[in-house]
Design a binder for these strands. Structure first.
Length: 202
DNA sequence: TGCCCGATTAACT
DNA sequence: GTTAATCGGGCAA
């Protein structure tokens, strides 16, 4: 396990934090695994919830970095974001897929499926498997029940268009671990290789 | 107050 | 490939 990430890690542009999160380990009450797919949402980005300005739902995005922004999706699922940058900038990283490594039995029970590849491959599935709900909205990522650890070695990170949005679809702000079996969707062949990102903990 | 629609998923045909 | 499920946010009225 790499070094525990502290608030400083998130006090950077969402475009730096998002690729750096690939390969990091996210645990909620000890359950979780390696981040293999995330998306960046910048406050100047029409696809971001914060683009319209502060509201009750997106308030956490306008707060300090290093906190969880959890929202209800399609009235059914929860989706989890990690707030970045200095307070007020309202940018966040959406967790889209995890390679499950810790608490497999718990995740299988919560999800009602046995296949590892279906446990955390999608933002709604991640929250169901890790037990993340509205109760986690606004909680610090650097304290229980959360724990995040930097990746240890270099990882080959690729980028491509984000999924499921209807605005700013041209922005290549979806990041993934190249070749992972646990992505919610494969990246297009020839997707941009961001490069071997060094492990980094700040 | 009412209406439309979404950073989704699973179960259909 | 298509669609139902399900609900709260955001905006028009």
């Amino acid at each position: 396990m790499g070094k525990r990430l502290t608030r400083g890690f998130f006090s950077r542009s969402v475009h730096e934090v998002a690729p750096d999160l690939i390969g990091a380990v996210l645990l909620v009450n000890g359950v979780g695994g390696r981040l293999v797919e995330v998306e960046a949402y910048h406050h100047t980005d029409p696809a971001a919830h914060s683009f319209i300005g502060p509201t009750e739902r997106n308030a956490v995005m306008f707060g300090p970095p290093g906190y969880a922004y959890v929202y209800r999706s399609y009235g059914i699922h929860w989706c989890m974001n990690l707030v970045c940058e200095p307070a007020g900038s309202a940018s966040a990283v959406l967790i889209r897929a995890i390679e499950p490594t810790e608490g497999l039995a718990v995740m299988r029970r919560r999800r009602g499926v046995a296949d590892e590849r279906l446990l955390c491959s999608g933002p709604g599935r991640v929250c169901e498997a890790l037990g993340v709900t509205r109760a986690h909205n606004g909680l610090a990522l650097t304290a229980p029940p959360f724990a995040i650890f930097a990746r240890k070695g270099d990882e080959e990170v690729i980028a491509g268009p984000r999924i499921g949005i209807t605005k700013a679809m041209e922005k290549p702000w979806r990041y993934g671990l190249k070749g992972s079996r646990f992505l919610s969707k494969p990246f297009a062949p020839g997707a941009t290789i961001v490069g071997k990102m060094p492990s980094r903990a700040r």
